[in-house]
Simulated assay, not measured.
Amino acid sequence: MITHSFKRRTLFGAGAAALAAPGLLTGIATAQESAEMGAMASDAAFKVLKLGTFKVTVISDGTRASENPHETYGTNQPAEAVSALLEQNFLPTTGLINGFAPVLVDTGSEIVLFDTGLGEGGREAGTGKLAEGIRAAGYAPEQVSVVVITHMHGDHIGGLVEGGKPAFPNARYVTGQVEFDFWKDEARVGTPAENGHKAVLQKVVPLAEKTTFIADGAEVVPGIAAIAAFGHSPGHMIYRLESEGKALILTADTSNHYVLSLQRPDWEVRFDMDKAAASATRRKVFDMIATDRLPFIGYHMPFPAVGFVERQDQGYRFVPATYQFDI
Rank of each mutant, 00 (worst) to 15 (best):
F168A: 04
R311G: 08
E194T: 02
G315S: 07
V148T: 11
A131F: 09
G223E: 04
G163M: 09
A252H: 01
V220C: 01
S279N: 03
R317W: 03
H153N: 11
N89M: 10
I59N: 06
G176Y: 05
P102I: 04
P304L: 00
S233P: 04
A137F: 06
A167W: 07
G15P: 05
W183C: 06
A35I: 15
F182W: 04
G176T: 10
G223S: 10
T3W: 11
A31M: 02
A247L: 05
L241V: 11
T53R: 15
T30C: 11
H4P: 06
A193W: 12
W267M: 06
M288F: 12
E242R: 11
T281Y: 02
G298R: 06
R311A: 09
S279Q: 09
E194V: 06
G128R: 06
G38F: 11
E120F: 10
K55I: 03
F12L: 14
E67I: 09
T72P: 04
R123G: 02
A29R: 15
G154P: 09
D266S: 13
T72W: 13
G62I: 11
W183G: 00
L96V: 10
K129V: 02
W267P: 00
A81S: 13
T211L: 05
N256R: 13
M1Y: 09
T53I: 06
L49M: 12
R270L: 15
V174Q: 03
F100C: 11
S42Q: 10
A140E: 15
G119D: 00
K7E: 15
F296M: 13
E179H: 01
K284N: 06
D274F: 05
T281S: 14
A276P: 03
T94L: 10
P92T: 05
A65E: 12
N256A: 13
A17M: 12
Y316H: 10
A21Q: 09
I97L: 13
V105L: 07
G122S: 12
L24F: 13
E142H: 09
N170L: 07
L104R: 08
T3F: 15
L207N: 03
L19P: 04
A35Q: 13
M273A: 14
L160F: 07
L49F: 08
H300K: 09
H197P: 11
D253Q: 10
A278W: 00
D185T: 04
A84W: 10
K198G: 05
D253K: 00
E71K: 14
